[in-house]
């Protein structure tokens, strides 16, 4: 049970600034996902909250208390690592119990808490096994169990699902969400996978080059991206960005860009829409179809349509059209501007 506050948090490695000042107030029990491409500083930020990296300037507060100078163990946090970081020579039970043993918890209580966590995670029959005798999903669960038994204030997840196969990832995603909700523990979760971010987050932080471009609820971020980077990163397939030359006077964008999501575009017979395109190829995914086309000047554009609809021929000359309110305008620095 904890609130977290990051106050103008900055981090530099030597002369290289990795995080340029991030501010956020995290409410008790909130699930926050930090998402961004590799190298954007998201893991560094998590490690600063954990106490594994020092803070260059600014402050990390947990429950209103500055913890910049506290060791990880004194912050009452638990962390799940990408490669799980299980102790290879210890049984599952000992792995989960290690933190409690160091904290000199009485033996009966350790056994009780480990059993309870094992039950929650369906690990009861594996308690005597070594990590190498477990599957990837089971190791992931042990890593979660190790976090749970300590009853921490905060869960920190560093890309915990990226070593799992696709199916298991979906399953574990749901389990993590359920677990966090039922335990009511504040969670910080780092990922580069926007689907994980969209599905897990109460609020998400979209990081771009050490800056938090946008902080908000997933749907809010999707509907209302504040920057071109966010518009391009969140949503799949990625937003189409068109410049003045691509648009050829259809919409006035000056030196900025116009962003339009593929799902907001429709194909129509030539002459009936706003822009003329040549269809290059189509990807029929069943439920949906992605149509890759190019404009008259060669710029690529993607259209997403329902899988039930008719497939256009490759090479067909068609128009695209859109609703005026689906358009997102960005200035030349990528900042969102109000629709004209």
């Amino acid at each position: 049970m904890a609130t977290i506050k990051l106050d103008a948090l900055k981090k530099s490695f030597g002369k290289v600034d990795v995080i340029h000042g991030v501010d956020i107030d995290i409410k008790d029990g909130e699930f926050i996902v930090i998402v961004g491409p590799s190298g954007c500083g998201k893991s560094t930020m998590l490690r600063m909250v954990a106490g594994l990296e020092t803070v260059t300037s600014g402050e990390v507060q947990i429950n209103g208390v500055g913890v910049n100078d506290k060791e990880p163990m004194d912050r009452n946090i638990a962390m799940v690592f990408q490669n799980y970081a299980l102790y290879p020579h210890m049984s599952v039970f000992d792995n989960m119990a290690y933190g409690l043993k160091i904290a000199k918890t009485p033996k009966e209580e350790i056994a009780e808490r480990v059993q309870a966590a094992a039950k929650l995670l369906q690990l009861e029959e594996y308690l005597e096994r070594k990590p190498r005798e477990l599957s990837g999903g089971q190791r992931q669960r042990v890593a979660m169990g190790r976090a749970i038994v300590r009853k921490p204030d905060v869960f920190l997840f560093d890309e915990p699902l990226s070593n799992l196969d696709a199916k298991l990832r979906v399953q574990m995603r749901l389990e993590i969400k359920q677990l966090q909700k039922s335990l009511g523990v504040t969670a910080l979760y780092v990922t580069h996978d926007q689907v994980e971010a969209m599905t897990l987050a109460d609020r998400m932080i979209v990081m771009n080059g050490g800056v938090a471009d946008q902080i908000g609820a997933p749907l809010e971020v999707y509907k209302n991206p504040k920057t071109a980077f966010v518009a391009g990163f969140i949503g799949s397939p990625a937003t189409n960005f068109l410049t003045a030359t691509d648009l050829a006077g259809v919409v006035e964008v000056g030196d900025g860009t116009l962003g339009i999501r593929p799902e907001h575009l429709q194909l129509c017979p030539a002459g009936e829409g706003s822009l003329n395109v040549d269809v290059l190829y189509t990807e029929a995914l069943g439920a949906e179809t992605l149509i890759h086309a190019k404009l008259a000047n060669g710029a690529p554009i993607t259209v997403r349509q329902d899988g039930q609809m008719e497939l256009p021929e490759s090479g067909a000359n068609l128009d695209v059209r859109w609703q005026a309110d689906a358009v997102m305008l960005f200035d030349k620095n990528g900042q969102r501007v109000a629709n004209a």
């Binding site: 594994l52 690592f81 102790y87 020579h89 290690y98 933190g99």
Partner: peptide, 26 residues
């Protein structure tokens, strides 16, 4: 892996404890 030392640190193990409990058996 570095994460092992970090996990031990989060678990509250001081350096010599990490050495005895984890590094030595490994």
């Amino acid at each position: 892996p570095d994460e092992l030392a970090e996990a031990a640190r989060v678990d509250g193990a001081r350096p010599m404890r990490f050495f005895w409990d984890i590094l030595l058996p490994m």
